[in-house]
Structure formats: C-alpha cells, structure tokens
C-alpha cells in the first residue's frame, strides 16, 4: 500500500477540499518531489510550527512568489547535478496563483522551467475569510462581493487562467476536480513526466467558504463538472486534446446547494442571474463539446 505523504493532524476544516487535493497530488507524484507552497489555507493548515503535514520536502516563502521559488529550486537541482533527485511542484490557491502570483507564474511558464504548477481552485480568499478573487464565479456572494439590496454578488466571470497558461505555448495544461480522484492522480503523473512547464487547475470545493455541509465536498465538486460550470480538459501547446463529457444537469442543482448562491433563489430578479449562469455553462459546453 502506498505511504500517505500528507499526514493527518493538519488543521484543515472537516471536509476540506484543499486537503483532499494535496493528498491526491502526492498520490500522483510519489515521494521524490520538492513542493513549493505560497501563503494560503493549505500552507497554514499544514505547517503550524513545530509540525508539518508534509512528508516530502516542502517550502513556503511568500504569497505571490511560489512560481519564482519553484523556478529557483529547479535551476538549483540542475546546477548541483541533482536533477534526477526530485520533480518540482508548486501547489497554490487561486488567490496566490490567479491574482497576486500571476506575474511570477507567467515568468516561470515563459522561461520554460521544468516545474508543475498546480492551483487548487476554491474560488475565493478562504484563509483571510472568504473574500472575492478573480477566480470567484459570477453570482457568488463573498465577504467583499456580498449580495445586497442592489447587488447579486460577484459581477464578473471567473478569470480563465488555464487559457492564459496555454497561451504561453507550454507543453501541458489541464483542469481536474477532486470529485474525480483517479483523473487528478493520472494528470499529476502525466504532468510531472513531461519536461518543461505544466499548469494544472484542480477544482477544490470549500465547505466553509461556499456554505455547504462538509460531507458534501465531493458531491458539490461533481455537480460543478456535471453542470458544465467547471469543464475538465487537457491541452497541449494550446490545443485541447481531451475533454470530460457529461450528461449535463441544470446549473440550479449546483447553485442551490450552496449558501454563496442562496440569494439568487430568494431575491427579486434572481432568475435573470441564474439564466446568465446557465449561459456561462452553455458556452463552456459549446466551446469544449462537453455534452454526451
């Protein structure tokens, strides 16, 4: 049986999606890795001094520099003749990756470092208290994009970082969801086997931030995929090479199960907003050919 490389005793909430993501990533990577984490929920819950949940070499430096630190680890291994010792993987949240760290990430991708950058996407700044990030989806109520008398919550669509990563012409970009663990493990294995920069975005529902019972983390993740709101695909050098097809469900099934979208079902005019979200899912289905 494979050794558990992300140890229990960490401080993640009961039902933490990010912790599941970390476990699956390490199942895919094995122990010969060096992990770089930016500041964020996963970093905080996994490394309360003098403890660490990581059974693989791990470093946290700052919030926006994980991709640059990972670049440094990679070139150091190369320079010291230790390239075969470990694969380099960065694991950051959506705030650290898609907002504040996008400059460093773009630099890392553009320079061609042999690093796999993995974003666990829980669609807001969870560690600081569920504030809106550029990965927060349309219509979600967060503490800085709250639904109110004249607001339906977040009024911009989710930033498409996989497409931005792919625009760097890198050899491998993929999305995945913790609801499909074998797919996550397979994609991590594949990513680290490819030389050069790789980007993986793993949808990781957050029970605390999104407002659902911790037992439903996987169910919610599955619904995001089944409604077409989080398309799962792979792309190589900018071209989509595989897509997870689904028998699509209406977006309401996903949205109504979460507190962050509750206002859409209760406020006047919410129907129009639900329609806009359905349009986003339909557009994804069309772009990626999601429908079975």
């Amino acid at each position: 049986m494979q050794e558990e490389l992300f140890a229990p005793g960490h401080r993640g909430c009961a039902g933490c999606g990010a912790a599941i993501a970390a476990r699956l990533i390490l199942k895919g990577s094995g122990k010969d890795v060096i992990i770089v984490s930016p500041t964020g929920c996963l970093e905080v819950v996994s490394s309360p001094y003098p403890e660490s949940a990581w059974k693989v070499p791990w470093i946290h430096s700052l919030f926006e520099n994980a991709a640059a630190v990972a670049s440094g680890v990679e070139v150091a291994l190369k320079s010291l003749g230790r390239k075969d010792e470990a694969k380099v993987i960065a694991i950051g949240g959506d705030g650290a990756t898609i907002d504040i760290g996008i400059g460093a990430l773009s630099g890392m991708l553009e320079r061609g470092h042999d690093v796999t950058y993995i974003c666990y996407d829980n669609e807001a700044y969870m560690n600081t208290g569920i504030q809106r990030s550029s990965s927060t989806p349309y219509g979600a109520s967060t503490t800085t994009s709250p639904a109110g008398k004249v607001s339906f919550g977040e009024n911009r669509p989710k930033k498409n970082l996989p497409a931005i990563a792919a625009a760097h012409g890198i050899p491998y970009v993929a999305t995945a969801s913790i609801a499909y663990p074998k797919d996550v493990i397979k994609k991590v294995k594949k990513a680290i086997s490819i030389e050069g920069p790789k980007y993986l975005q793993i949808h990781a529902p957050c029970c605390t931030g999104w407002g659902f019972d911790g037992s439903k983390t996987i169910e919610i993740g599955r619904l995001a995929v089944e409604t077409g709101l989080f398309p799962i695909y792979e792309s190589t050098e900018g071209k989509v090479t595989s897509v997870k097809k689904v028998k699509r469900k209406p977006v309401e099934e996903y949205l109504k199960a979460q507190r962050r979208f509750k206002h859409l079902f209760e406020s006047e005019g919410g129907e129009g907003e639900l329609k806009k979200i359905q349009d986003i899912a339909d557009a994804n289905a069309k772009q990626f050919g999601l429908d079975l």
């Binding site: 049986m1 558990e4 039902g15 999606g17 476990r23 663990p181 037992s215 996987i218 169910e219």
Partner: peptide, 30 residues
C-alpha cells in the same frame, strides 16, 4: 480516496478508520 485526513486505511480487503484523526466530516459515508 476522499478522506481529507488520509486516515482510512485498507486492512485485509476491507477498510478501517483511525479515530485518532478522523474529524467526522462524513464524506466517507456520503
């Protein structure tokens, strides 16, 4: 596979929970 604590292990051909770490989230049951 889904346990956020990684605290459900295979024993013979079945599974067992290490209650020292199980936070009781209920994903396993769900």
């Amino acid at each position: 596979m889904f346990c956020p604590e990684g605290t459900i292990c295979k024993v013979a051909d079945k599974y067992a929970i290490d209650y020292d770490y199980c936070k009781g989230c209920g994903i396993c049951a769900h």
